[in-house]
Structure formats: structure tokens, C-alpha cells
Design a binder for these strands. Structure first.
Lengths: 348, 348
DNA sequence: TATTAGCACTCTATTGCTATGAGTGCTAAT
DNA sequence: ATTAGCACTCATAGCAATAGAGTGCTAATA
């Protein structure tokens, strides 16, 4: 349903004001602060109608209006205009060192810190999953006695290692032979293909290598499964800055939610498919602990394909304009850094 | 200074009571709840003296007594008796799955969760440092173009990897040669020794390997330097359960402190040298953000040598008896698991 | 007909006041 | 040395009065 121009302007002003100050705004103040050329009485009528339509509400009879989740939704979808506030960000940028490429792990951690610092909210970054990853190399290192370390490398440089214990001792020399053999068999295949392959091979091979084979299989699985380690959280304490979390109960449940990385993963992964920024407001979030919070999420890419997500968790009353910009900026930054890191010589 | 028996009993009861209930205790209630065979008036006198001596204080004139940090200190040092409350722990144990050995990283993460769950406080675990670690193997894997992944393995199974970009392309074959060469040169030397060695070698070697050498050097350094990754925090939200952190400011600063892993590292590492349990009460902590908090810390071992620390951060008013037991238990558990993992065939 | 001024009404937040009671410290009696 | 008794302190809860922000409605106005 399209709102009349005047109604839209009022709604926008109310939300702008509430986001800025955090206190409900009444007709008087609204008339004074923004000049609509309308009296407070008229605004009162308009606001009453907006309330009836479900965009606004007020905490009690003699209080000003605040937006409902629905109101925020409308605000985000149609009212917000990300006009040239880029300068606004760039001010902060100058103070916050952006993440620099390097180890993937570091990059993700730094990105989450960066995002948190700029947004003044808790930031969550999900590291790239490896659907594109291909087998590159496997290495067996004999440590002591019968302990063998399996090191599994994908073409994107992800290293997964796993310590196993064999039933009997084995020479490093034999391990090397086996490694070379596997390299030849598996190189350039996708992770799912090699798992298939390993299963086939396991049926043919001699007993001693069986366990090695089996564990290599496991390791290749774990590259994709070690999900919770992929979640990077930055600046969780930032959300304490917001007065709306003075309520200790609310806060506790939020922190609990932040600790549950698996849930976070699912929460953010919902949007991994789509490009661009998504905003989930208050009750739109699936987990009840998130009531009163909003998510601003974006996916990031390497090359052309979307490979991960990052976003921000903050109070429903957050500075959407700014946060949306920051999330967008960070997503693009991370994409760029990953490009530099992985894509450079991809023509293989 | 030794306290008279009666004074000690009173002090102990006051602290016990305050720890249990969280409310200041007055002479009347004290006389009623514990039977000293003394009237409230006498207790009043005793408490007044204990206050003069610095063990107790009261928040305002007409309130009951609460312990000072000094009082807690005395309590910990001489009053607390860890009598058979082990059963008490074991109750919880049955509900909390203990960490199981496996990947070192997982073990540490699980240990921090475990400790947090049992102690109802935030738990911090510092992963083993590697002063004992010896060079085991280095592997170079060519990824794409001029990208080379350096994988560095120590004798304890720690794997450190590092992605570098060379000035010119190099064949996997040459990398292998170099790897074999380094293995021969460096095996069984301690990390500091090999750094020394690498520096020497760098002066002799041909240009192309220079950069590899240099980066290998770096990697060996980083095994010991990647400190912040060694800090595992579990159950930070637990501290919100405590009423004393209703004060939002206090809480915020505490959370900030928990996010600063580097600080945590330094904080806990102070006790790494000593064996057994250490308790740092309130103002004894070096960081002002920790005012109102206590630490209970223990080191853990692998074999005979102390290699890491773990502990708990909670409010000054914590259940020391229980927490001390839990920390002790966890430290021993971790030691045991590490033993199983590393020491099995150490007779080398 | 849309807008506005005016007014009665509602509800919160603040303030000041007054018990209430838990607890102390001191003194004198035991 | 211990205790009973008493005056005193101070946080807390409850209560009433007030101020102020804001609404909704009605009647006047352009």
C-alpha cells in the first residue's frame, strides 16, 4: 500500500528522530524540530492514523510515538535514502585500520573487529565455505611412535590437520610413498569427488594404509564441517553501549545467543544465497532471544561467486543508514581482499 | 598476624553467609543462624574489631557487614577447608560432558566450556606454549602461480601454516628438494636453535630460496608468537547471572576486558611459573577493569613440565570452595588428556 | 473541507515527606 | 568478660502532591 507523501514524510521524521535520540517523539516537538508547515494538531491526526495503520505505536497514553517493527520495515524498504553520507563513514575509516590480507583466519578476525568498530554493534563474520575448494595435497608426518599427523591442503590454501594413532608403527618413508600416491590419484578433484574416490580405494588397499585412508577421508570431511570455527565475533561488548539493553535479562539472553555460534551460523547463512544487503528487524528474526534486535547482513564474494556472509547485530533502534553503509563497505572490502588473495593466478 | 579462634570463626561465618546470600549480615542474624553461644551484642563487638583490623566493612552505617578484599584473602589462605565436597562437583560432572582429547584446538575450546559450565563463571584457558616444541617437518605446497603455502610442524603436533607469494614461479619438485634439505638440517632442534640456524643458512643460500627461507623463519617464530589465538574463553555470559553486575558500567568494562585477549594472556600467564592454584581477589588484580572480580587460576602440565594456564573470572563474591575445586579438577583433567595425547611414546 | 486552536484528560516521572526496621555503637548492669 | 538496653543512623518503601508532556476531541477558522 502506498502512503501519501505527507504521511511518509512524517513517518520518516518520527523514525529519524527516534533513532537519533531514543526517546519517543510527540506532536509538539515534531512540529518544532522539522518544519512541515503544519501545526502540532494536524501532526497529531496524522500520527494517530499512522498508528492505526500499524507503523507507529506509543508506550503509554501520554507518551510520544515510536516506530513499530512494521514501521521500521517500511522505513528501510522505501524511506531510507543512502545519500552521500559516505564522507560520514570515511571519517571513521581514517581512525580504524582496515583489515589487511594475510592469513585467512586473521583476515576474518580483523574484519569482524573492523565491522564492530565502525558500526558500534556486535559484528559477525562467517568465513568462506569451501564448495569450490579442490584437493591439493596431503602430507603425513610421523611424530612419535605410532602417532601420525595428517595435513590436508585444498587449492585455496585451507589447511586442515588431524592427529591419529595407528595400530602399528610405520616408517616416514612409507608415509611419503602413500602421500605421493594419493596426490596423483586425487589432485584437482573437488572435495566431494575425492571422498567418493577414497571410499572406492579403501576397498582395494592393504590393511596398514586402511586407517590412514580412512582418516584422510575424515579430514577432507572436516574441512567443510568445522563450521563453528568459521564464526568470528567482534565487539560484542559494543551492544552494552545501547541504553535499551539496560534490562539485564534482555542482555543476558542476547549474549547467550552470541555464544551459540552454531545458531549464529544458521541465522546468517539464510541470506548467503542472495546478493546485496538484507535487514531483519526485531520480530522478523527467528530466534526469540533476538527480539528487540535487528540484523544487517550482506554476503561477500570471491570472483563471481558468493562464498560467505557478514553482518551486524544491534538494537532495533540502530542507525540503519550508517550501519547499512558500513556493512556494504566491509563486504566489498573483504571481497576485494579475498580476490587479491585467491584469484590472482587462477587461470590454472 | 594470627587471629584468635573466636574471631576466626566469626569472620568465617560472615564470609560464608555473604557468599551464600549476597546480602550484608548483621549481628542479630549471625547470632541466630550460627550458634556461637554468644549474644548479638558480643558479636557486634567482635565484628567491630574485625572491621578495625580491616577484614570487614559495611556499606553504610545501618547495614550489616561484608568482607573486604583483605577479608577474602584471609578466608582463602587460612579459613577455607576443602573438605569432602567432591561429591558436590561430581553431581555436576554427571551432567556436563568432560572434554575429550582430539584436536588440540578442540580440546582447549571444550575445556573452557566445561570449566565455565561447572564454575558458573567466565572461563579462560590458555593453550600450551611451545618452549619444548622441536622442529619436526616443514612442507612447501605450491598452490597457484607463485603462491606457496608453508606448513610448519613441531614435534608436539602443532601445525602452523603461512601463505606467501614468491617473485617468480617455482616447481613443486624444487620445493620438495628444499623441504628435504631443511628437514635434514633442522630436525630435532629446538625452535630457538633452528631460528639461529636459519639465519646462518640464509647467508649462504641461493637467491630463489632466500625468500622461502626467510618465510620459514617467520613461521617458526609465529608458532610461539601467535598468542592471542591461544586464548579460549567460555561462558562469558555466565557472569551476567550474578546480581552484582547489574551495574551496567561495571559489566561493560568487564566484557571489554574479556575481549582483550592479549591482556588476559598476560594476566593469566603471571601464574604459569608456579604450580597449584592461585587466587587473585578484587584489588589484587592489576587491571582496574577487574575491580570487583576475582581470578582463580591454575597451571596445567604435560608430563612433568608446566605448559599452560587455565582459570575462572567471576565476582569477588564467588563460591571459592567450589570454584577452587573445579579449577583444580579441570587442570588435572587437561593435564591427563594432554599426557595421553603427547607423552605416550616420548621415550625418545 | 482541511487545518488549527483550545481544552479536558491521562499517565509518567519527580519530589518531598513519613514511617519502618535492620543494624550499629555506647554505656551501664550483670 | 558478657550482655541488656537504648539512642542514633540510614536505606527503603509507601504515599500524596505536582509538574509536564502528550493525546484526543470539539469547535472555530480560512
Amino acid at each position: 500500500m502506498e502512503l501519501e507523501e505527507r504521511y511518509r514524510r512524517v513517518l520518516q521524521s518520527v523514525i529519524d528522530s527516534y533513532i537519533a535520540t531514543g526517546i519517543p517523539i510527540g506532536s509538539h516537538v515534531l512540529a518544532r524540530r522539522y518544519d512541515f508547515g503544519l501545526s502540532s494538531a494536524t501532526l497529531r491526526n496524522i500520527m494517530a492514523e499512522l498508528e492505526e495503520m500499524g507503523y507507529l505505536t506509543h508506550p503509554h497514553t501520554s507518551a510520544g510515538r515510536i516506530p513499530t517493527d512494521w514501521g521500521y520495515r517500511y522505513y528501510i524498504d522505501t524511506l531510507i535514502s543512502i545519500h552521500n553520507e559516505t564522507d560520514d563513514i570515511e571519517d571513521h575509516l581514517r581512525q580504524t585500520p582496515p583489515p589487511h590480507s594475510g592469513d585467512l583466519h586473521e583476515l576474518m578476525a580483523e574484519a569482524s573487529q573492523f565491522l564492530a568498530a565502525l558500526s558500534h554493534c556486535a559484528a559477525v563474520v562467517i568465513a568462506p565455505s569451501e564448495p569450490e575448494g579442490r584437493y591439493r595435497h596431503v602430507e603425513f608426518v610421523r611424530l612419535r611412535g605410532r602417532q601420525v599427523l595428517i595435513i590436508f591442503v585444498t587449492s585455496t590454501g585451507i589447511v586442515q590437520n588431524k592427529l591419529i594413532e595407528l595400530d602399528e608403527s610405520i616408517q616416514q618413508h612409507d608415509l611419503n610413498t602413500f602421500s605421493v600416491y594419493l596426490d596423483e590419484e586425487l589432485v584437482h578433484h573437488s572435495l566431494s569427488e575425492i571422498r567418493q574416490r577414497l571410499v572406492e580405494k579403501m576397498n582395494e588397499e592393504k590393511r596398514l594404509f586402511m586407517r590412514l585412508m580412512e582418516q584422510t577421508y575424515r579430514a577432507s570431511q572436516e574441512v567443510q564441517e568445522r563450521d563453528v570455527e568459521k564464526v568470528y565475533i567482534g565487539g560484542a561488548s559494543q551492544i552494552l553501549e545501547n541504553p535499551e539493553f539496560a534490562n539485564v535479562d534482555k542482555m543476558r539472553s542476547l549474549f547467550k545467543a552470541l555464544e551459540d555460534k552454531y545458531k549464529l551460523l544458521k541465522l546468517l547463512d539464510r541470506s548467503v544465497a542472495a546478493e546485496g544487503i538484507k535487514v531483519f528487524i526485531g520480530s522478523e528474526n527467528p530466534y526469540f532471544e533476538m527480539q528487540g534486535c535487528s540484523l544487517v547482513v550482506s554476503s561477500y564474494k570471491a570472483g563471481e561467486s558468493i562464498i560467505g556472509t557478514l553482518g551486524v547485530i544491534g538494537p532495533t533502534r540502530m542507525k540503519y543508514r550508517q550501519v547499512i553503509q558500513v556493512v556494504d563497505y566491509t563486504a566489498k572490502l573483504v571481497s576485494k581482499l579475498l580476490d587479491e588473495r585467491f584469484q590472482k593466478g587462477i587461470k590454472r
